[in-house]
Write a protein that binds this DNA or RNA. Structure first.
Lengths: 363, 363
DNA sequence: ACGACGAATTCACACGTGTGCATAAATAGC
DNA sequence: GCTATTTATGCACACGTGTGAATTCGTCGT
């Protein structure tokens, strides 16, 4: 009788039943601010204010509350907090691919997030089949504070999924420039700097006739590295010759074939080649050697990326090592700045690469 | 006057002020179930029931609600839902390292999560400095539904952070076995199967005196591959000779030195070597060649991992290719089974590797 | 026509945290 | 000792979703 009429027992019972039977609940219940409040003898508001460093709390109660939090091993529920703040203290990384290049970038991002106490959600899509997948959905679903987008494809125009992010004012920073018309917040490898370093190295070791194996022209790096190559030749007052450039699409075999063609060039073969990545550099070296040329005596080759394989290849490959791990950290830092002030002017950071001279070029 | 007395306006005003001034809110407001309810003319409960396929809803209202959801482009707020369900429709991957091996595993996991519509939180720790970081914290903070743990270190006893997960009944699946005393849910490379395949290959091509360069004995793979090696010799009725085994700790240089020592073994040098990874296989091959031996004519070498470099090395390295991408998918599947029934018996899955015969061993 | 029953919907509460406003307590001023 | 002011806390509502229990609505049988 008492049970049925009491206004308190009914809801309470319902809670208990819920806790016992619900298919959702499986974890041991964690203490909440209410538990702490009860223990100390205040309301949960007060506890909340202590957690959020509200100055309007007396030192005495503050101490008591902090002590109680320690004792109960309290940790705020970031999901509940996220519901109120519309943020979850997490970032998202969206990458259209997971290849060896991305790994050090992810490492940089992940380490920085950990240092800052942020979570990191990883979303890998697939650029071929899902290029226009909604990115905003991710943010809406998990309410991440900001998004890092690893951009590989060269876009002339802003794709729809990016426009959607902008429309919803979602803080976001790109890894790799965007090219096309639009300037966006980004942290990237400074391809101009890197390529100039490589070409200068070749020029300094006496080469005048330098060719290039380009990467795919659908990719940002492919486009940038080629234009940087032409720019470098110009700066160094060397001639650019179309007939000793080829496109290997970043692949070993395609570079191999292009290199063979170039080495038979009627206008005379180059004495040095710059390749847009290490894989193609290795393909080029193999082509040269298969045609009876000695590397680097007859022809020097420089790559880009500093893959592990570049070190083990025979001859080992001279290459450019981009600071991939740094990129991640710098990108998160920029994202924090964007979040703090979303209307700040667009910021572009280009990081310098290191030239590693090995056997495939004359030192 | 009306404004001040009306019981409705005050809270309403406060909401508006809140929305305008709060430092948290930055996103365009998304439609909620309440918006849909208002549009259709029902309460939010009804909408919620439609979303959750509650049968007690008439077909007519259900249709109206679904239509309204489409029109408003409604998407459930997973954070709010997570608060109620104590789950956020996301998994966490905890890995003590981000190295090239982990990448395909991550890819497998990420793809599977995407296919299932789950989010993936990535937490990389650092086994040297933070081995005992709390894992449970992660789950508590973001309320992930389950945890995948990439396990590299060989533990004799269950470490504290894992015990904590168990204590809180957090569904979790390991990648790589746990060894030691404790059996845990795991999806792993079947090292026994793989190593036996490699040793059999060497035996089948006429080798009787086979040595090994071990990996670090602090790692699960290091320990397992060595014991699998001894087991394989036994099964094939070949002799195990301590003097032609060395430990390279998974490093190129250490393997190089050990190999040189082994090749001078007073009990006679081996005609074939099995190395616990490709890096060490390359080190061993280099050592043999530096001592004037021909690979594979004088000595065959087999590695493990199928690194990209193994293909480009001269001679290219015969190796075992573990199905790393599969591991991720299988692990998520297992995790789902564990979530569905947390008290099910421990399940261990070992996946088979593929032997790839290249120049470093006689085919 | 009336009650009974089942189906459809609403009500009221919950999840854990944050915060504007009101109020209580403490302090200052005279 | 009384009011005016500051300081510390409580109250009530909010965030968006889920759900047991209560209520309303229709339908059927008598």
């Amino acid at each position: 009788m008492l049970f049925e009429s009491s206004p308190l027992t009914k809801p309470l019972l319902s809670v208990i039943m819920h806790t016992l039977t619900s298919k959702w609940v499986y974890m041991r219940k964690r203490p909440t601010i209410k538990d702490i409040a009860k223990k100390v003898g205040v309301t949960h508001s007060t506890v909340s204010r202590v957690i959020n460093d509200n100055p309007a709390i007396s030192g005495r109660t503050k101490d008591k509350i902090l002590k109680a939090m320690k004792e109960l091993d309290y940790q705020p529920n970031l999901v509940a907090r996220g519901l109120v703040r519309r943020k979850t203290h997490a970032f998202a990384l969206i990458t259209p691919d997971l290849n060896p290049h991305v790994l050090p970038i992810i490492k940089g991002i992940s380490d920085t997030c950990r240092r800052l106490g942020y979570g990191l959600m990883l979303f890998s899509t697939d650029y071929w089949t899902e290029e226009n997948r909604s990115y905003a959905e991710v943010v809406r679903n998990w309410l991440v504070d900001g998004v890092l987008i690893y951009n590989v494809i060269y876009h002339e125009d802003v794709p729809d999924n990016i426009k959607e992010l902008e429309k919803e004012n979602i803080p976001c920073v790109f890894i790799n420039k965007f090219l096309g018309r639009k300037k966006v917040n980004n942290v990237s490898i400074d391809n101009n700097e890197a390529v100039f370093k490589a070409v200068s190295h070749l020029a300094a070791t006496g080469h005048k006739r330098i060719g290039m194996i380009k990467g795919g022209m659908l990719s940002v790096d492919g486009v940038e590295r080629f234009s940087a190559f032409r720019g470098s030749l110009e700066k160094l007052e060397l001639e650019f010759d179309e007939s000793i450039t080829g496109c290997g699409n970043f692949f070993f075999n395609e570079a191999y074939e292009e290199m063979k063609r170039i080495l038979c060039s009627p206008s005379g073969r180059p004495t040095a080649m710059f390749c847009a990545n290490d894989i193609m550099a290795m393909g080029s070296v193999k082509a040269a050697m298969d045609m009876g040329l000695k590397v680097p005596q007859d022809i020097s080759v420089v790559g880009f990326d500093d893959l592990e394989a570049a070190r083990f290849f025979k001859p080992s490959i001279t290459t450019l090592k981009p600071p991939l791990e740094d990129i991640g950290g710098r990108a998160i830092e920029m994202l924090l700045r964007v979040i703090e002030n979303p209307s700040r002017p667009v910021e572009e950071i280009g990081l310098a690469s290191r030239l590693i001279v090995r056997e495939s070029s004359v030192a």
